[in-house]
Computed example of a mutant assay.
Amino acid sequence: MRRARRAVSRSTVGRAWRRSSALGLGQRALGFAALGFLTLVPLLIIVSSGDPENGRGFAQWLGEGLGVSRASRQQVEHLFIQPGQALRTTTAFGIAALAVFGLTLGAAVQSGYEKVWDLPPARWWARWRHVVWLTVLTGYLFFSATTTLRDKPLAGGVMASLSALLFLWWSQHMLLGGRIRWRALFPGAMVTVIGLLGLRLFSRLVFSPLIASNTVSFGPVGTVLVVQSWLVGVGVVVFGGALVGRLLCEKLPRRTRTMKRRRRDATS
């Protein structure tokens, strides 16, 4: 049993478990969900209202992002106002509070990435990276909320996956201050995109019936609980994908060296 425990501890699964425990993956995902609900929801409502003719509206965007059925999507749409109304009713104080929460979300994501790569916290003057990241995030969300390729679902899915891959890859490099090479960050971005696709499938199987049942039991609050649970899943995928990407980055060079050594032994 001791040998088995040592083997498991030295394996990739054992290292992933230890590092996820040190990362505090569950707590960070809960923090991401709380800040995401305070930041991403109003931000998406505002940016989708910026182009009311082509924009889908936040409720429709969220329903498609969740991947839920049409009936559950209608329950989500009942929670939010129609496109075009948010810009007329948003106040300066609301925008300022949104900016503060958005910068806090950027700091939380940066802290998670630094923990994944065992890096020390960045200096205080590096806060400008949060501003740049929030600005690019706003543009990315506006692009996602106003770009429609419904007549070509395959092309739309490929474009959404590719844009998410590029944004996540760049986000890691920007928030980490270039302390990790681009090549080492790519596996984490790829795993995160794959995890988001898996979360979409999980949402269709689990969250879609949950929205219907929770709406009957709790009313609109039940739908909010499901959306919040989905944001927790997004947080797990964001930080967990970066962690798995680091493990892959460490595993692949060793696997390559082992294969080269075996080839040399076989030829000799």
Rank of each mutant, 00 (worst) to 15 (best):
1 M>G: 12
2 R>K: 09
4 A>G: 09
5 R>H: 10
8 V>M: 13
8 V>F: 15
13 V>C: 09
18 R>V: 09
19 R>N: 10
23 L>M: 04
23 L>T: 00
26 G>I: 13
33 A>T: 02
37 F>T: 07
37 F>C: 04
41 V>N: 06
44 L>Y: 09
45 I>W: 03
49 S>K: 04
49 S>I: 06
49 S>Y: 07
52 P>R: 05
52 P>D: 06
53 E>V: 15
55 G>P: 03
57 G>H: 04
58 F>V: 08
60 Q>D: 13
64 E>Y: 05
65 G>I: 02
71 A>N: 08
72 S>H: 05
73 R>W: 00
74 Q>A: 14
76 V>Y: 08
77 E>C: 08
77 E>I: 06
79 L>Y: 06
79 L>S: 09
80 F>D: 11
85 Q>Y: 09
86 A>L: 06
87 L>H: 05
88 R>L: 13
90 T>Y: 08
91 T>E: 09
91 T>A: 06
92 A>I: 11
93 F>T: 13
96 A>C: 06
96 A>M: 10
97 A>T: 04
99 A>Q: 05
100 V>F: 12
104 T>Q: 11
105 L>M: 15
105 L>K: 12
108 A>G: 03
110 Q>W: 00
116 V>P: 10
117 W>A: 02
117 W>N: 03
120 P>D: 12
122 A>R: 12
126 A>F: 12
126 A>I: 04
127 R>I: 14
130 H>Y: 14
131 V>Y: 08
132 V>Y: 12
138 T>K: 05
139 G>N: 05
140 Y>S: 12
142 F>E: 06
144 S>C: 07
146 T>E: 03
149 L>Q: 05
153 P>S: 00
154 L>F: 04
161 S>W: 02
162 L>V: 12
164 A>Q: 09
165 L>S: 07
169 W>T: 00
171 S>I: 06
174 M>R: 10
177 G>P: 03
179 R>E: 06
179 R>T: 12
180 I>E: 09
186 F>Y: 09
194 I>R: 00
196 L>G: 03
197 L>W: 14
197 L>H: 11
201 L>N: 04
202 F>M: 12
202 F>A: 15
203 S>D: 09
203 S>L: 06
206 V>G: 02
211 I>G: 03
211 I>V: 15
212 A>Y: 04
213 S>H: 11
213 S>M: 08
215 T>D: 10
216 V>S: 12
218 F>R: 08
222 G>W: 11
222 G>F: 10
222 G>K: 07
223 T>E: 07
224 V>D: 02
224 V>M: 12
228 Q>L: 14
229 S>K: 01
235 G>H: 04
236 V>T: 07
238 V>F: 13
245 G>A: 02
246 R>V: 02
250 E>Y: 03
250 E>P: 00
257 R>Q: 13
258 T>R: 13
264 R>W: 05
265 D>R: 14
266 A>V: 02
268 S>P: 11
